[in-house]
Design a binder for these strands. Structure first.
Length: 287
DNA sequence: CGCTTTTGACCCGCGC
DNA sequence: GCGCGGGTCAAAAGCG
């Protein structure tokens, strides 16, 4: 579970399905996918050289026609390496979903309607796993800025990991997107962020499809151009593309390494500013 | 005062 | 059936 190559995969059959694929598959598949997005990303280039973690962009195509969640725009100033794993679960086939997601829109309404006993509430719920994405981001900050507001609702110690896992839920009451944040036990500088679900709203404080959350100046400064939170199925890829470009073009990024071979993270001292704005492609900025 | 975080308890799924 | 581990709940505390 805590293998940086397999972020949070062990508890989900769908994840395991992904991990069953070897790296060649990922490279090949990634190249195919990226080429569909007109990316010029060489799958085995800089992404595979990061932090001693043989990561690559591990992206798979959705088995469903669901759009890719727009929530997975996590990044940080420290994003020197990113691995993305997309998992889709057919929500119409609960038998294919193993466990863990206890909420969907309908459940949300029933669960919040009354203080029913937990047993009843739990029984009424069907744990339907939604589409999930895992990001591996090299960062000192656990909670990476992604343009949405999150409320922490739990934290658990994870077996075989010295770092706890934090559970967040989108603060939008109608939005059931959740994310889990944990650090890799093998490389504590790597943050594994797993998103589940799709946002049904735009990012906070972006009334014009634009960019600046008005109420969170610490996290969003004027130069942070966040992407439109619309259901853009390519957003992850765009994000990664930009990350990749930064990796290869910025002299500050992964080229510098620490003694243990890990990448020094130049912007790590300014985590509250985030980097998402910097890594969002121009094409995704305010039109 | 309202929102967020913390944290122990509880529930569920799964493997044995 | 039992134990374990993951995920969630919800009350209390903290914070601006």
């Amino acid at each position: 579970m805590n293998d940086p190559k397999d972020p949070d995969l062990s508890d989900d059959s769908a994840w395991r399905e992904l991990t069953a694929s070897d790296s060649d598959f990922f490279y090949r598949d990634t190249s195919t996918i990226l080429s569909e997005f007109a990316w010029n990303l060489h799958a085995s280039s800089s992404f595979t050289q990061t932090a001693g973690v043989p990561s690559s962009i591990t992206t798979t195509t959705s088995k469903t026609d669901q759009p890719i969640p727009t929530s997975s725009c996590s990044s940080s100033a420290a994003a020197a390496s990113v691995t993305v794993t997309e998992v889709s679960t057919n929500v119409n086939n609960p038998s294919a979903a193993t466990s863990s997601s206890s909420e969907d829109p309908t459940e949300n309404s029933t669960a919040s309607a009354a203080k029913t006993p937990k047993k009843e509430k739990k029984k009424a719920q069907k744990r339907i796993r939604q589409q999930r994405f895992a990001f591996m981001t090299k960062s000192d900050v656990d909670n990476l800025e992604d343009g949405y507001r999150w409320r922490k609702y739990g934290q658990k110690a994870v077996k075989n990991s010295s770092f706890p896992r934090s559970y967040y839920r989108c603060t939008n009451s109608r939005c059931t997107v959740k994310k889990r944040v944990e650090r890799s036990s093998e490389d504590p500088s790597i943050v594994i962020t797993t998103y589940e679900g799709q946002h049904c709203h735009q990012t906070v404080g972006f009334p014009r499809g634009g960019i600046f959350p008005a109420h969170d100046p610490h996290n969003f400064t004027s130069h942070h151009h966040l992407p439109p939170p619309l259901p853009n199925p390519y957003y992850y890829q765009e994000l990664l593309h930009q990350l990749h470009r930064e990796n290869t073009s910025s002299p500050q990024l992964p080229q510098s390494t620490t003694d243990d071979g890990h990448f020094a993270v130049p912007s790590i001292n300014q985590p509250e500013e985030g980097l998402l704005g910097d890594i969002v492609p121009q094409t995704m900025r305010n039109p």
